[in-house]
Simulated scan of single mutants.
Amino acid sequence: MKNNFYAVIMAGGVGSRFWPVSTQKFPKQFHDMLGTGQSLIQRTFERINELVPTSNILIATNENYEKLVLQQIPQLSSKQLLLEPVMRNTAPCILYAALKIYQQNPDAVILVAPSDHWIKDEGEFLRNIQTSFEACAKDDILMTLGIQPDHPNTGYGYIQYESTNSEIKKVKNFTEKPDLKTAESFLASGDYLWNAGIFVWSAKSILKAFKEFLPDMVNVLDDGNNVYNSDFEDDFIKSNYKNCENISIDFGIMERANNVHVLPVDFGWNDLGTWGSLYGKLKKDENENAVVGANVIFRDAKGNMIRTENGKRVVIQGLEDFIVVEKKDIIMICPRKDDQDIKEIMSEAGDYFGKKFV
């Protein structure tokens, strides 16, 4: 059975809200963001590798990050990298992966997971994936994992499900990033989950869905000549990938298909999308200050997050609820409540300091 288990780790993003640490040349998934001694993608690979054989794990990333992936995960061969020549959101690279995997094994069931999430209970996560694999091997369903929400977050998508006694629920609908009032009503109703962007399906089921909902994309990436897993694959992708529609799997398929199901899960999850979300997962001192890398003296300071190059000596006095990040020749200081603005700050810094700094 395990030979039919496959995984695609999505590692193509830039993580601009983690500037100045995350940059175009060296995005956040390749950094040790939590100070654990492992980058986010290394931890994600090891976690999934507990269930999925090494040879069945693919990494979807931008062609610029090929060397970074192979340096950080030397167990992989270059044939296991899906190199995107241009960014086209999640649907095209998921189709690319599904065509490649189906050509290898028509009975494959596939986990699609981001490279940069934090998961507390990895054993529970693997049990949930095993449950999902077994369900998708048996039935023609498209599955997503739904996180039990603990606050009305407006940065996540929400999944409403049908209340039944079965462990896996049928999805009623998806709602992308609601406003605060809507998010509060979702929490109160009790039948909504956060969309974690972690999917499971069989190769057959997802290809069938692409043919139904995104047939033009199938025509672009499937020319019927069995180019996948051959010497022609790289050239074919370089020539054709740019012609795919720029669309997410959520908008392209999950919000339109009627065989979407969700497994409500509770394994301690965070998408690590901002410095503020990272702060939430770090150890704090008695004044709620968190530190990665630095050697800090805090004086009359609380609720701060400090991240510097290893061993940098820092003194913080009179600061409350701020993010202080240092990287080589850049220092960024920003209120924690404004961490969503860092994407704009990065863009402004690129214009002002020069593109090499972003």
Rank of each mutant, 00 (worst) to 15 (best):
V262A: 01
D179K: 13
N295V: 06
F322R: 07
Q38W: 08
G318V: 00
K138I: 03
N89V: 02
N229A: 11
K355W: 09
P27V: 10
F26E: 10
M33P: 11
P335F: 10
G303L: 02
F251C: 00
L81M: 12
R336N: 07
L145F: 05
A209V: 02
D191N: 15
V358H: 04
I141H: 09
I168S: 04
W19M: 07
I247V: 15
K238E: 14
H151G: 00
R17L: 11
I129N: 03
R88W: 00
E286M: 10
Q104H: 11
V86M: 01
D223E: 12
L70W: 10
L81T: 09
Q340K: 06
R47Q: 12
V296A: 13
E84A: 14
M217K: 10
E255Q: 14
N165P: 06
I297L: 13
L207G: 05
S132R: 03
S39C: 09
L70A: 10
I333T: 14
Y102I: 05
F133V: 02
N304T: 09
A98W: 07
Q103W: 01
V86N: 00
Q38E: 15
K355M: 10
E167Q: 14
K281Q: 15
A301G: 08
F298E: 02
D329N: 15
F298S: 02
G123T: 08
F251W: 05
N153M: 00
E245A: 12
M33R: 04
V315Y: 01
I129K: 03
D338L: 13
G190I: 02
K204D: 11
F267Y: 15
S185Q: 06
Q24E: 09
F232L: 11
W269D: 00
D250L: 14
Q130M: 08
N304F: 07
V314K: 12
I333N: 08
S132C: 15
S166F: 09
N270G: 02
S55Y: 05
Y6K: 13
R307W: 13
A290R: 01
P264R: 01
E66A: 12
W275P: 04
